[in-house]
């Protein structure tokens, strides 16, 4: 009975994974086409504005992934259900990948737009770098521990990173910021050309689908690996 239910569940998840993979591929293709054929150049940044479509989507989804890891870690410590640990590690891996993309593309864009690679006085840069290091540490910790201990200790670290992230935001406000103001979420509406805004939104959708598919696959892999270790 339980075996049949599990098989049905597996089939459903297989289908969901295939649908998400197809949707992610389609959204990426559409976003790429839009970015290179329909999106206009920006007045001062000209064609380099296209780095933004990679940068903003990655940054937004990185923060979403951090949020998922922190939430799943709290839920794991509360309920001690390994499924939350599987979600936490999947989101943490994606957050490291997405933050890396954010830091690299942000740095390239800053060099083109402002002629500097890095500014320590920028709150968002240091916050992103801080979270990158925290989650690289999180993955390292998982690498050198195992079993329940791995799940518990990494959850504690993820929870401890929450106040550190918030306080870091305030700490960097002691300095002035060099980061450009938001393009979409700005009081009085989006500031950029509607064509640019549409391209940003399309890239966000593509990122969301890619991360959703990747996370689902990773969660299932972690669950299968855990099942092998069950007594």
């Amino acid at each position: 009975m339980a075996g049949a239910m599990s098989e049905r569940n597996d089939r459903r998840l297989d289908r969901a994974e295939r649908v998400l993979a197809g949707a992610a591929a389609a959204a990426t293709a559409i976003a790429t086409l839009w970015v290179f054929t329909r999106s206009p150049d920006e007045a001062t940044l000209r064609e380099t504005i296209r780095i933004l479509y990679v940068h903003v989507g990655a940054a937004f989804m990185a923060y979403v992934a951090y949020g998922i890891t922190a939430t799943a870690a709290i839920l794991y410590l509360w309920r001690r259900n390994r499924r939350f640990d599987h979600v936490a590690v999947a989101a943490a891996e994606w957050s490291v990948v997405l933050s890396s993309i954010t830091l690299i593309t942000g740095s390239i864009w800053a060099k083109v737009a402002s002629n500097w690679w890095w500014q320590w006085s920028d709150p968002r840069l240091t916050l992103t770098l801080l979270l990158w290091f925290v989650y690289v540490g999180y993955l390292l910790l998982r690498h050198v521990t195992d079993g329940d201990r791995r799940a518990t200790l990494s959850a504690v670290l993820a929870v401890a990173a929450i106040p550190a992230g918030i306080l870091n935001h305030f700490a960097t406000l002691l300095f002035r910021t060099e980061h450009p103001p938001p393009i979409l979420n700005r009081p009085g509406g989006a500031a950029a050309d509607p064509g640019i805004v549409r391209a940003v939104l399309l890239s966000l959708v593509a990122y969301a689908l890619i991360v959703g598919w990747g996370m689902l696959a990773r969660v299932r892999l972690e669950a299968a690996r855990d099942a092998l270790d069950e007594p």
Partner: peptide
């Protein structure tokens, strides 16, 4: 592992 895990958490404190 200890400094790798600890120092990023200390960043706000060190800045201040």
């Amino acid at each position: 592992l200890l400094p790798i895990l600890l120092f990023p958490l200390l960043l706000p404190l060190v800045l201040a």
